[in-house]
Amino acid sequence: MPERLLILNPGSTSTKAAVYDGTRPLFSRSIPHSNQDLAPFPTLNDQLDYRVALVRGLLAQERVDLSTLTAVVGRGGILPNIVAGGYQVNDALVDCLLHYPVFEHASNLGGVMALAFARPLGIPAYIYDAVTSDELLPEARITGFKGVTRTSFCHVLNARATAHKYAESRGLAYKDMNLVVAHLGGGISISAHSHGRIIDSVSDDAGPFSPDRSGSTNTLYVVDLCYSGKYTKAEMLKKLRGEGGMSALLGTHDCREIERRIQAGDERAALVYKAQALQIAKGVGTLLGCFTELIDAVILTGGLAYSKMLTNMVIGYLHNLARVVVIPGENEMEALALGGLRLLRGEEPVHTFAPACDLSVIP
């Protein structure tokens, strides 16, 4: 059976497109979008036809015969009430992506674009491992703050793709393993994977600080700042995401620059980098307590995992507790393609999106 997949990954400043023949990429390109390019479109949804046309032009340039495609896989959007894995794009899913997402994000166009290509060809369109995929255990949702319930919010796509890759390297299936995956990037999230399910997670605002996010801190300090009169809500949110972490502490979020400073004898940079490693290890340690069975490994992945200085410090904290492996990088296009292949081959179930509530009440 042919297995030729078109992969679509819309982002805020680009649309990435690739064609895979099985596991082999035939090409992968990123189409940039400047502020001027997007200025004519008042809303994100207004960009749909523009982005589809650009991808069609790219496919024509690459001489891709659309009739040879087997399926189209789009980046999963910010959807409510979904689990990890793949969903076939249907009208209900498109309606939710366009009109009732959890919040506006360019990835919401992924499934809609996929259907725009797939429907005329009579082939399936999928989304895979959306960020808001949530499979937390019921007991993991409870907080001590009445009225506040925990939800899962982590780098699902790369975390699960890396877990699959590690399982295959061991000659095992992902569903047969217990793993903790720490995605180390501009934001850091950590997830606990038990037999193919993410049973708990630490989001990028509830765990280690990162290059530009402040991570977890004493909530009393945050309450005091919120009511100090010094900052607006928007400014406080910037302190959490965008202007926190190493950006706030060292004036840069570039770890290569930080490592150069450390090598030049900057003791402050060395202390902050060691603190980040400690917080990553503590975040992993938190999730080690989620399992009733022995875990197989802790995986460090994402762009920051290329830093041997950082990963060696993390391993130094954790090596007596668990096997720690480093699988650096984040290849979203490959992750989407391999996920789509598992759906086509029947190795994973294809979920059907059906709203669990009246979506019109979602703000």
Rank of each mutant, 00 (worst) to 15 (best):
Glu235Gly: 01
Gly316Ala: 06
Cys255Ala: 10
Tyr221Thr: 14
Tyr231Asp: 05
Cys226Asp: 11
Gly215Trp: 05
Ala234Tyr: 04
Gly283Tyr: 03
Cys290Ala: 15
Tyr227His: 11
Asp212Cys: 03
Leu310Asp: 01
Ala297Asn: 09
Ser214Cys: 14
Tyr273Glu: 05
Ile280Lys: 08
Leu278Phe: 15
Lys282Ala: 12
Ser247Leu: 13
Glu293Asn: 11
Val298Ala: 09
Gly244Leu: 04
Ala275Asn: 12
Leu271Ser: 07
Met309Cys: 06
Leu343Asp: 01
Gly289Trp: 05
Glu330Val: 01
Arg261Pro: 02
Leu249Ser: 12
Leu287Gln: 08
Ala270Asp: 12
Arg213Tyr: 10
Gln279Phe: 07
Tyr231His: 13
Lys282Glu: 11
Thr219Gly: 12
Leu341Ile: 05
Ile262Pro: 01
Leu344Asn: 01
Val350Phe: 03
Asn331Cys: 06
Val298Met: 07
Tyr306Met: 08
Tyr227Val: 15
Ser228Gly: 11
Gln263Arg: 14
Ala234Phe: 04
Ala270Phe: 03
Gly215Phe: 08
Gly242Val: 02
Ser216Asn: 11
Thr292Trp: 07
Leu304Glu: 05
Ser216Gln: 09
Lys282Gln: 14
Leu310Gln: 00
Glu334Lys: 12
Ala270Asn: 09
Leu288Gly: 02
Val314His: 05
Lys230Ser: 11
Leu341Gln: 01
Lys238Glu: 13
Met333Val: 04
Arg268Val: 13
Glu347Arg: 10
Tyr227Ile: 12
Thr217Ala: 13
Val284Leu: 02
Gly265Ile: 14
Thr252Ser: 15
Val324Pro: 10
Thr252Ile: 03
His351Ala: 14
Leu310Thr: 02
Glu293Phe: 05
Val350Trp: 01
Thr301Val: 01
Gly329His: 10
His253Ser: 14
Ser214Met: 13
His253Gly: 12
Glu235Ser: 03
Met309Asn: 13
Arg342His: 10
Thr217Phe: 11
Val284Ile: 15
Ala337Ser: 15
Glu243Thr: 06
Thr301Gly: 07
Arg241Ala: 13
Gly339Ile: 07
Thr311Asp: 06
Gly245Ala: 04
Gly283Trp: 05
Phe291Ile: 13
Phe291Cys: 12
Asp224Glu: 14
Ser216Pro: 03
Glu330Cys: 04
Leu294Trp: 07
Glu334Cys: 06
Val325His: 07
Gly215Ala: 15
Ala277His: 08
Ile262Gly: 08
Ala281Cys: 06
Val272Ala: 00
Met313Ser: 11
Gln279Leu: 12
Ser216Val: 14
Arg256Pro: 03
Ile299Gly: 00
Asp254Trp: 03
Ala234Asp: 15
Leu304Asn: 04
Pro328His: 00
Gly302Tyr: 01
Ala335His: 00
Lys233Thr: 13
Thr252Lys: 04
Cys255Glu: 09
Arg323Asn: 11
Thr286Arg: 07
Ala277Phe: 08
Lys308Phe: 08
Leu344Asp: 02
Gly265Phe: 07
Glu330Thr: 00
Thr286Lys: 11
Val326Ile: 12
His319Phe: 11
Cys255Lys: 06
Val350Glu: 02
Met333Gly: 00
Leu341Val: 02
Gly289Ser: 13
Leu310Val: 01
Glu235Val: 01
Leu250Met: 08
Thr311Cys: 12
Tyr317Thr: 08
Gly339Pro: 02
Ala275His: 08
Thr252Gly: 05
Lys238Asp: 13
Val350Asn: 01
Tyr273Arg: 03
Gln279Glu: 12
Ala269Glu: 01
Ile280Glu: 07
Leu338Val: 08
Asp212Asn: 15
Arg345Pro: 02
Arg213Phe: 06
Lys238Arg: 15
Leu240Arg: 14
Leu343Phe: 00
